[in-house]
Design a protein around this nucleic acid. Structure first.
Lengths: 119, 119
DNA sequence: CACACCTATGAACGCTCGTTCATACTTTCA
DNA sequence: TGAAAGTATGAACGAGCGTTCATAGGTGTG
C-alpha cells in the first residue's frame, strides 16, 4: 500500500507538480549525489569525512552539497571550523530507501522494440 | 546488472546500486518524462493521444518513450497501426505516487548558507 | 595578528541530454 | 500496389550540468 494519493487518482496531476517532481528527483539522478545522500543516511558527516568516503574532490563535494541544500534535502551545522551535514529529515531518508528498494525490485523486462514484450 | 554485495541492510549501500538508482531516477528528473509517466498512470494511451495531452512534438514523445522503455518503466503494445503505451507494472505507478507524495510534503526549509538552519 | 585548517565560491571546460528537423519504417485501406 | 496514417529513428544544435582549477571566506591556534 502506498501512501500519497490514497483512493483518489490524479487524473492529470497538477502541472506545477510535474516540475517540482522533476526538480527534486534531479537530486537522485546523479551517482555522486546518491553516493553522498546514502552516506549521510547512515548519520551526520563532515565535509572532510564525505570527501574521504566518496572518491570526489573537496570542491566537487561542496558543490553537490550546495545543490542538495537548495533542494532542502540536507542541512549543514557548523561545528568548530568544520561543517557537519545531515539529511534534512526522516522524509528524505525514506525517499532514499524507497528509491533503492524500487530499483532493486524493478522487473528488468527491458524492451528495445515497441509493440513487443521482448526482442 | 549484478548485486555484488550481499542482500543486506544498506549500511553503506553497495557501490553498483548507486549507479542503478541514479540511472532509474533519471527518468523522473525531467518534466517531459514525468508528464508522460503521470499521464500513463491514469491508463494506457497511444502515442498520438500522449502527443495531444502533453504539448510536445510527436518526435520528442517518441524519443522519451524510448528512454522510458529502455529503463523498463513503460511497455508498448501494438494495436493496429498505432502503439498503446502503459506503465510496466504497479511498481512504477507506486514509485510515481511516492515521488509526487514526497515532493508535496517536503518541508520546504531551504537553506542558502551552510552552518545555519535558516538565513 | 599571522598562519594553518576546513569549507565555500566562481569561472571554465567537457560532456550529457532534450529538443527539433527530416526521413524511414510499419500497417491499413482503396 | 500506391497512398495515407501512425510511429520510430538518426543527425544536429543548444542548453544544462558535473567536474576541476584556482581562490576566497571563515575559524581556531600559537
Amino acid at each position: 500500500m502506498g501512501h500519497g494519493t490514497d483512493g483518489m487518482i490524479p487524473t492529470v496531476a497538477s502541472e506545477p507538480a510535474v516540475d517540482a517532481v522533476a526538480r527534486t528527483m534531479h537530486a537522485l539522478a546523479t551517482p555522486s549525489r546518491v553516493h553522498l545522500l546514502l552516506r549521510l543516511r547512515t548519520g551526520p558527516r563532515t565535509v572532510g569525512e564525505l570527501v574521504d568516503d566518496v572518491g570526489m574532490e573537496q570542491s566537487a563535494v561542496s558543490h553537490q552539497l550546495r545543490v542538495l541544500r537548495h533542494l532542502g534535502l540536507v542541512v549543514g551545522d557548523r561545528d568548530g571550523r568544520q561543517i557537519r551535514y545531515r539529511l534534512h529529515d526522516d522524509h528524505v531518508a525514506q525517499l532514499l530507501d524507497e528509491a533503492v528498494f524500487h530499483v532493486e525490485h524493478l522487473t528488468s523486462g527491458l524492451t528495445d522494440t515497441p509493440g513487443l514484450t521482448d526482442a
